[in-house]
Structure formats: C-alpha cells, structure tokens
Design a protein around this nucleic acid. Structure first.
Lengths: 107, 107
DNA sequence: TTAATCCATAACCTGATAGTTATGGATTTC
DNA sequence: GAAATCCATAACTATCAGGTTATGGATTAA
C-alpha cells in the first residue's frame, strides 16, 4: 500500500513538471499552449509532463475543440500528507517512549 | 527560496533511499551495517544514499569508533508540509473566489 | 603487530528520463 | 476546400543517477 507516495514523489521530483503543477494550483485551469508559453521547454515536453502528472492523478484534462485544458486535481496530494505525518508520528512515538523510559528510571 | 522542496522531492523520490529514511523514522538511530543488512543493495550504495539524505538535511550522523550511526532529522520535512499546504491553499482560494463570483451573480 | 571489521570514496557501467525535432490528426478559420 | 492552429505521439539523443566492484583508512580484536 506504500506504493502511492512513490509515484507522487517521482512525479513531483522534476522541477519543470512541479512548476507546471504549481501553476495549475495557483491559477487554475490552463491550456497546453498557455502552459508551454512560460515553461521554458517545448510543447511536446509540456505534453509529456502533463501526461505524467495525469497518470499520477495530479491533474485532470478536459477537451474543448482543438485545445485541451488541464487543471490540478485536489486531494491528489493526500497520500503525501499522510506519509509526512506518519513519519513525524513515528518520531513522536519514539520521543514518547524515551520519555516513558526516563520517567521509569527516575522513580 | 522555493529551492527547499526541490532537494527534498529529489532526495525522497528514490524508493530505496526513502525506505532507509522511513526505517530511521520508525526505529530510530541505526548503523550503516544495520541499514545495509535489509536494504537489498550493497553497502557503498547505502553509504551514498545516506550521503544524499544528509545533504538534504534529512539525517544526522554520529561517529562512534569505527561505526557511524545515522538518525532521522525531525523538522527536515517541514518545507514539504509547507509546500503541500500552500498548494492546497491556492486551490481553496480559487474555490472561495468562485464561491464569491456565484454569490454576486446570484444577486 | 597482525588480522579483521566498519565505513567512505573512487571508478566504472547501465538504464531511465527529460529534452529535442519531426509528424500527423483533429479542429477551427479563411 | 485550403490553410492554419492546437496538441499528442514517435523517434532519437544525451545526461544523470543508482547500482556494482575495488580499495583504503580508521578502529577494534587477537
């Protein structure tokens, strides 16, 4: 089940891809052309990144005539949030255990 | 300053490296040998991963005789938490804006 | 002192991937 | 219908990163 964060981390690791996702989060739905215009890479590169983002469930696409609109998919980041809080939780648990141990030694 | 999540995402994108970090979070401080024993890769590979994790601020090392103990560094995940909540925040803002717009149209 | 253990670094190999150009299908515009 | 626009896919290239083996320095054990 820990396979969910894996795809998310891999997908968001690339800077230009993450920049595209960030822009969709900030400004909402965008066409491929609009995203390409300020991405610094070619249109096919953007299309590939969008494909990767879509496969990771981070974006949705909507076809309208000859253009495709992409939008960030809310909730797709949830496994990431879960993972981080889980890691923080483990750390907290060990702190608590240490605390207990010290208390027992103190008596 | 948005360079902080970049290193974190890149560092955590690799599965075996993330597994090492997870184990340090779950079980606390470990020697390189212990980490190697269940990593499925060679000791030099583990050392390199630990170096990457250290450079990202995700782990600390402590030398004791001829062995090195590594431990997860709490708080190193904070930029990740910030980034995700920021993305979620953007999305929420746009929802609010849409809500406002609909309310204004309704009148 | 010698031998063995632990770890880090170097050197090298290989596969994955992000980038490119070329192309074509679908749609709109003239 | 013809031309132009938008986007996706194919094919190729080059870079990078994760893996390996080899090695050596530092420390502990015999």
């Amino acid at each position: 089940m820990s396979t969910a964060p894996d795809l998310l981390f891999r997908t968001l690791a690339d800077p230009t891809r993450r920049a595209i996702f960030e822009r969709l989060c900030r400004e909402g739905e965008q066409t491929v052309g609009a995203l390409t215009a300020q991405s610094g890479v070619s249109q096919p590169a953007v299309s590939k990144h969008l494909g990767a983002l879509k496969q990771a469930g981070l974006v949705r696409d909507r076809h309208e005539g000859r253009q495709t609109h992409y939008s960030a998919q809310p909730g797709a980041l949830n496994p990431l949030v879960d993972w981080t809080s889980q890691m923080a939780g483990f750390w907290q648990n060990r702190l608590d255990a240490l605390d207990d141990l010290l208390k027992r030694m103190d008596q």
